[in-house]
Simulated scan of single mutants.
Amino acid sequence: MTDAATLPVVDISGLASADAAERRAVAAALDRACVRSGFLYVTGAQFDRALFNRLLATARAYFAQDSAAKMASYIGRSANHSGYVPVGEERFAGSPVDLKEAFDVNNDYPHDDGRRPLLGPNLWPAMPGFRDGVLPYYRHLSAIGAQLFGAFATALGLAEDHFAPHLRHPPNQLRLIHYPHAPEADDRPGIGAHTDYECFTLLFATGPGLQVIAPDGRWIDVPQRPDAMVMNIGDMMETLSNGRYTATTHRVRKVPDERYSFPLFFTLDYDYVVAPLIPGDGTRVYPPVASGAHLFHQTAQTFAYLKERRARGELVLDDAMPPPGSFGRREAAAA
């Protein structure tokens, strides 16, 4: 079902302005959109389309390689959860195996201190030009993400630079996702239903397939808009806003045609303690949780190589952490 009217559109061009009033106007529009819907479209003069096209060309070339070439950078060999994700590696609880392959890119830190499993040097593939096709896009969108954090701070009644000291070493992740041509995938999920774990996500995709849960619990399609990126609220922003914004459950369904998708997930520094920043109505209590610990805890319950480490006793998770599915809207019950 398509219901484009459900998703608001926000022009964030004003966030690049030196005029504080223009930035506040964008923050107010962003606040209204996020209260109304955990998913929205964002447009802006600051988006560089040439970098999007370069990223897409890089992804096409990478995923066209044979399996052996791609598996040389298998994510299970990395120190910071970066690298190639083959079909079947990732599975959300209660969902079938995802029909996709991916390459995950994190902040490329030169050192790994051994305490933060999502920080460290990326496991880059040997393919010539891959890094040069990916990093400029990552850095470009990261700068826009910092502007959006300023807008969220303003929208929540905080100083515009409230989050700035906590954006020095965030475990932001860019995923290059490839949904292969699969005519038999009429009712097989590309990605099962889930919320994103981080604060918010910016998504660039090449084709339809994304669905979200509307406020009334219906699944609706997210139509393609060539002039806009899709943005959605994640678990941590739901917590930070004390439920003012809701992480919206989404999935990718019915992808018979080849599709590429490039979400960049934005979060705060690994050790930042995520807790409500504004008063709530008292109907729900969000326990504080360290940003990176929450992210890794959720990730370790999805990826096969991390599940295997848990089974061998090499990785122990904190049972006090919120389990997957703790956030967001729920699907309406079948009649």
Score class of each variant (00 low, 15 high):
Ala151Gln: 07
Thr154Phe: 03
Thr154Val: 14
Thr154Trp: 05
Ala155Asn: 09
Ala155Arg: 15
Ala155His: 13
Ala155Glu: 07
Leu156Gln: 12
Leu156Ala: 01
Leu156Trp: 08
Leu156Thr: 13
Gly157Phe: 02
Asp161Glu: 08
Asp161Gly: 07
His162Phe: 15
His162Arg: 15
Phe163Leu: 10
Leu167Thr: 10
His169Ala: 14
Pro170Tyr: 09
Asn172Glu: 15
Asn172Arg: 14
Leu174Gln: 10
Leu176Gln: 06
Leu176Ala: 01
Ile177His: 00
Ile177Gln: 00
Tyr179Gln: 08
Tyr179Ala: 01
His181Tyr: 06
His181Ile: 15
Ala182Trp: 04
Ala182Arg: 11
Glu184Asp: 07
Ala185Gln: 15
Ala185Pro: 00
Arg188Tyr: 04
Pro189Cys: 09
Pro189Gln: 00
Gly190Leu: 03
Ile191Gly: 01
Ile191Glu: 04
Ala193Leu: 00
Asp196Cys: 06
Tyr197Gly: 05
Glu198Thr: 10
Cys199Ser: 06
Cys199Phe: 06
Leu202Val: 09
Leu202Gly: 11
Ala205Trp: 02
Gly207Val: 14
Pro208Phe: 02
Pro208Leu: 08
Gly209Asn: 07
Gly209Met: 15
Gln211Gly: 10
Ile213Ser: 08
Pro215Arg: 13
Arg218Asp: 08
Arg218Ser: 13
Ile220Thr: 04
Ile220Phe: 00
Val222Ser: 01
Pro223Ile: 04
Gln224Asn: 10
Arg225Asp: 11
Pro226Ala: 14
Asp227Ser: 13
Asp227Pro: 02
Asp227Trp: 03
Met229Pro: 04
Met231Trp: 04
Ile233Leu: 04
Met237Phe: 09
Thr239Leu: 04
Leu240Met: 05
Asn242Gln: 12
Arg244Leu: 12
Thr246Gly: 06
Thr246Ile: 12
Ala247Phe: 10
Thr248Pro: 05
Thr248Ile: 00
Thr249Pro: 03
His250Lys: 13
His250Tyr: 07
Arg251Ala: 08
Val252Gln: 08
Arg253Asn: 00
Arg253Glu: 11
Lys254Glu: 12
Lys254Ser: 06
Lys254Arg: 13
Pro256Val: 10
Glu258Ser: 06
Glu258Lys: 15
Glu258Arg: 09
Arg259His: 06
Tyr260Arg: 15
Phe262Thr: 10
Pro263Asp: 04
Pro263Trp: 02
Phe266Asn: 09
Leu268Asp: 03
Leu268Trp: 03
Asp269Gln: 10
Asp271Arg: 14
Tyr272Thr: 15
Val274Gln: 05
